[in-house]
């Protein structure tokens, strides 16, 4: 029981179910197809980014560039003027390429130049924000139809976003069974022990940042489907929500522990929260307050559950300090 509770994934699942029950009571038409699709559409970009960020957190890093990549992908799509499926494909490819390039830069800086991940990704985040403004100086434009409403509609009875979310879950479960999927936990817990176990820690970190960059770009595509237009300044709140999702999911800031499944459930919690606040009639003016509070509370809950699960106290490593607030 104690062990189950201490697992962030279980905890996030419990919160999600509880929240959904409250949400069902707060509004009558919760269970309609439109409402469910809407919820999934809102959750999809969060889910994808949270999956990427979880990998980075597990490997002991942090990634601020996520906001930048999402924005960049968004404005790239919103400036594709063709309107055809062809131009949509070009836009998506360019967006994914941007994610890979930024991820590679992050990975290079962190893994091979040993730059603090916060500092490195702060730099790339600002770079991306700048590039987004260059591509699209003010909000507007529209994304190709293939993406919006394409990606927020349904294939038969199944919403596309549900497929995307399921793909994330399946991909993560498969990844956990790969060599990398185990190595990231080793490197995140104790880099020097991982190296002493024969793991090439730098290569592992580099690939994680690369994969994360790609996932953020995919999230940017899904977010564009939702907003249908471009916004070069639009990612701040989104980024915070992703942090919150990962925190609720029980990933340990500092590395070595976490699960994308937990983060995905965390993303679900936030999506339901938004709906619930709206349903009970909380003014949108105050949404920020709830989001901020839930972020802090989520981290606290995560820390308490970690403490419950820890049988033996472990010495704080410098790496861990580097992350919790930085600084060694």
């Amino acid at each position: 029981m104690r062990r189950a509770l201490s697992s962030g994934t279980t905890l996030a699942a419990i919160i999600l179910v509880a929240m959904y029950i409250v949400y069902m009571y707060s509004s009558i038409d919760v269970l309609t197809t439109e409402n469910a699709t809407d919820l999934l559409n809102n959750a999809a970009p969060l889910v994808i980014s949270a999956t990427g960020l979880t990998l980075v957190i597990v490997v002991g890093g942090f990634d601020l560039s996520l906001g930048g990549v999402v924005t960049l992908a968004n404005v790239i799509l919103a400036t594709q003027t063709g309107g055809t499926t062809g131009s949509a494909a070009v836009g998506v490819l360019l967006a994914l390429l941007a994610g890979v390039v930024v991820g590679a830069l992050n990975g290079f800086l962190v893994a091979y130049l040993n730059v603090q991940s916060i500092a490195a990704t702060l730099g790339t985040f600002i770079m991306c924000s700048g590039l987004a403004l260059v591509i699209m100086p003010s909000p507007g434009g529209s994304v190709p139809e293939f993406i919006s409403p394409g990606l927020i509609s349904s294939v038969g009875p199944v919403p596309v976003s549900l497929l995307v979310i399921l793909a994330c879950v399946v991909a993560y479960l498969a990844f956990r069974r790969t060599r990398m999927g185990i190595h990231i936990f080793a490197v995140g817990l104790d880099e020097s022990a991982a190296i002493q176990s024969g793991i090439k820690a730098a290569a592992v970190k580099f690939r994680v940042y690369l994969a994360a960059g790609l996932l953020y770009a995919v999230a940017g595509v899904m977010l564009s489907a939702l907003t249908a237009s471009g916004d070069p300044n639009g990612s701040a709140v989104f980024m915070v929500l992703v942090f919150a999702a990962v925190a609720i999911g029980g990933a340990k800031f500092g590395g070595g522990r976490g699960s994308a499944i937990g983060s995905i459930l965390g993303a679900g919690v936030l999506a339901v929260l938004q709906k619930m606040l709206f349903a009970v009639g909380v003014s949108t003016f105050y949404t920020g307050i709830f989001q901020g509070a839930i972020l802090i509370v989520a981290v606290l809950i995560g820390m308490i559950s970690l403490r419950l699960g820890e049988t033996r106290p472990r010495a704080v490593t410098t790496d861990q300090r580097a992350l919790t607030g930085r600084p060694a």
Partner: peptide
């Protein structure tokens, strides 16, 4: 003991 970027990001929103 909330990491500072989480804490201050939260208070930024609030």
């Amino acid at each position: 003991k909330v990491p500072s970027f989480i804490m201050t990001l939260g208070s930024q929103l609030i």
